[in-house]
Simulated scan of single mutants.
Amino acid sequence: MDEKKQTARPYRERLWVPLWWWPVAFAITGLLAAEIHMGAPGLRAWLPYVLLFPVPVWVLLWLSRHRVEVAPDASGTPELRVDRAHLPVNFVARAAVVAHTAKSAALGRQLDPAAYVQHRPWIGPMVLLVLDDPDDPTPYWLVSTRHPERVLAALGLPSAG
């Protein structure tokens, strides 16, 4: 238990959508606005572009809203924060890195329905944190992150995978 209470390095990551999604979203929006415009003069010439172009910005920013963070709690023990969910490190029995090649199995037949899952399809690897809390029915957390080794290092946990 003492090795889990090491001084943790803070970690913060925002799970942004891939950059190539932005031009694709604007191209699709431009095509839709051009279909509405269809060469008509006046208001229909510019209004579709003005009204539709904020939509992909809002959608892509909404998809990128998720954060993974490791920070100390009130007692100084590191905890994993995924959006509004908090997991103190002293409830973690063991941890592993789930490679992008094993993600399909981890989210498929092997997935426990009671597990806490924060999955983003555009993020390859994941972190698996098996819990040891008799008061919590959640057996483990499965969280998408671009740098799973850094998350585990920030939590002060050894990686089993």
Rank of each mutant, 00 (worst) to 15 (best):
K4F: 04
K5C: 00
Q6G: 10
A8Y: 06
A8H: 13
A8G: 15
Y11V: 02
E13I: 01
E13G: 05
R14D: 01
V17L: 02
P18I: 00
L19M: 10
L19E: 11
W20H: 15
W21D: 07
P23V: 01
V24A: 15
V24L: 15
V24R: 13
A25W: 00
A27C: 09
I28P: 05
L31N: 15
L32T: 14
A33C: 07
A34I: 02
E35T: 13
I36C: 09
P41Y: 05
P41H: 09
L43E: 09
R44T: 03
W46M: 06
P48E: 03
V50K: 09
V50R: 11
F53S: 13
V55W: 04
V55F: 02
P56C: 00
V59K: 12
L61I: 05
L61S: 10
W62H: 13
L63M: 12
S64M: 03
R67Y: 01
V68F: 04
E69Y: 05
V70D: 09
V70R: 12
A74V: 08
S75C: 02
E79Y: 03
L80E: 07
L80G: 06
R81T: 05
D83R: 12
D83E: 13
D83H: 08
R84E: 10
A85P: 05
H86T: 15
P88W: 00
V89A: 12
A93T: 08
R94D: 06
A96I: 04
H100W: 06
T101M: 06
K103T: 07
K103I: 01
S104H: 14
A105W: 11
L107S: 10
R109K: 12
Q110G: 08
L111R: 15
A114D: 15
A114E: 14
A115G: 10
A115T: 08
Q118I: 01
Q118S: 13
R120S: 04
P121V: 02
G124H: 10
M126C: 08
L128F: 08
L128P: 11
L129V: 02
L131F: 01
L131W: 08
D132N: 13
D132H: 09
D133T: 06
P134R: 13
D135Q: 14
D135V: 06
T138R: 12
P139E: 01
V143S: 10
T145G: 06
R146E: 02
E149H: 14
R150I: 00
V151D: 07
V151P: 09
L152N: 11
L152Y: 06
A154V: 03
L157S: 09
